[in-house]
């Protein structure tokens, strides 16, 4: 799969503070890509560079095979973390205005605006000023304004913050639908659950540098600690075998039994032994959550 976005060796400095230190990120076409990192790590700086809001001090950004230029903003939709729209402007006018700023013809913008308002049950609010809407509705309007011009690249900065669970699910479904239709999606977030649920690949940025990059599945495999959760028949007690595995406590609140394999022991050997000596009813490999990997990597 070709890379839709290639960030190469980007450096950005503000007043002597290094915001991005030789950062490179490749986002394959059609991918849902997570940009992770603690606050102040440089995620927003990188997003602003991809968005052409600011220029890097050095390094390049390539979009769809060519160096990114001013006109490419029409192919990008951006939902900033700090949401903002004109409070005194009517909902419909506002969406059409933002779509036209992205280069969409007026008639198309009008038609799409009506479709989208309908999809989000906001049709009756079209001629109301934005300030009359609830916060959740305003967020939806902002989402529509982000995606209305059919961007090939969608950048969401903390998209789910401020949404209630029902709306968050609706939003997630829409994002996945846009992805199926071919949009490449870049998430910037520290909500690790959403990363595991939707992202194929991630880059973890810490202290202005990429410290971890790759497919989510691969990263979890790489960080696994050979832990297996075993289910035993009710009342049965686990018989240990120090040569094959040791006991390790599950996270607080869990009633599972976890074992950690000794070095060089294959899963099948351990399971075979367990099956022989215990009333084993089930087992599954425990992979570290992205949350754990994040915390572990950032704390380093």
């Amino acid at each position: 799969m070709a890379n839709f976005i290639e960030v190469r060796d980007v450096v950005k400095q503000y007043d002597g503070h290094m915001a991005l230190n030789h950062v490179s990120v490749d986002v394959p076409e059609g991918c849902i890509y997570g940009l992770l990192g603690p606050n102040g790590a440089g995620k927003t700086s990188l997003i602003r560079i991809i968005n052409l809001i600011t220029r890097p001090d050095s390094g390049t950004v390539t979009l769809d095979g060519h160096l990114i230029v001013e006109d490419d903003v029409r192919h990008i939709g951006y939902l900033p973390e700090e949401r903002g729209l004109y409070k005194k402007m009517k909902v419909g006018d506002q969406i059409v205005y933002l779509a036209r700023l992205k280069g969409m013809p007026k008639a198309d913008a009008q038609r799409e605006m009506l479709d989208w308002l309908d999809r989000f049950d906001l049709s009756e609010w079209r001629d109301k000023k934005l300030e009359a809407l609830s916060k959740g509705m305003q967020q939806k309007v902002q989402f529509i304004a982000t995606v209305i011009h059919h961007p090939k690249l969608l950048i969401f900065d903390e998209p789910f913050s401020g949404f209630d669970p029902v709306n968050a699910d609706q939003l997630k479904a829409e994002i996945l639908r846009l992805n199926e239709q071919g949009s490449t999606i870049l998430f910037s977030t520290h909500n690790m659950e959403s990363v595991e649920a939707v992202c194929e690949r991630i880059s973890l940025i810490n202290h202005s540098q990429v410290v971890l990059e790759g497919r989510v599945d691969d990263i979890r495999q790489q960080h696994k600690k050979n832990i297996i959760a075993v289910d035993l028949a009710p009342g049965a007690k686990l018989e240990a075998n120090d040569r094959l595995f040791g006991l390790t406590p599950p996270p607080p609140g869990s009633r599972e039994t976890w074992i950690q394999l000794a070095d060089g022991v294959a899963v099948r050997d351990a399971i075979a032994w367990l099956n022989e000596h215990n009333q084993l009813t089930g087992f599954h490999e425990v992979l570290p959550s992205m949350h754990e990997i994040f915390v572990e990597t950032v704390k380093g």
């Binding site: 968005n51 001013e70 951006y78 900033p80 700090e82 903002g84 729209l85 004109y86 933002l98 992205k102």
Partner: peptide, 13 residues
């Protein structure tokens, strides 16, 4: 203060 500005400058200079 509305923060609309970040949306606008992602569309124009």
């Amino acid at each position: 203060t509305n923060r609309i500005v970040e949306v606008i400058v992602s569309s124009c200079k």
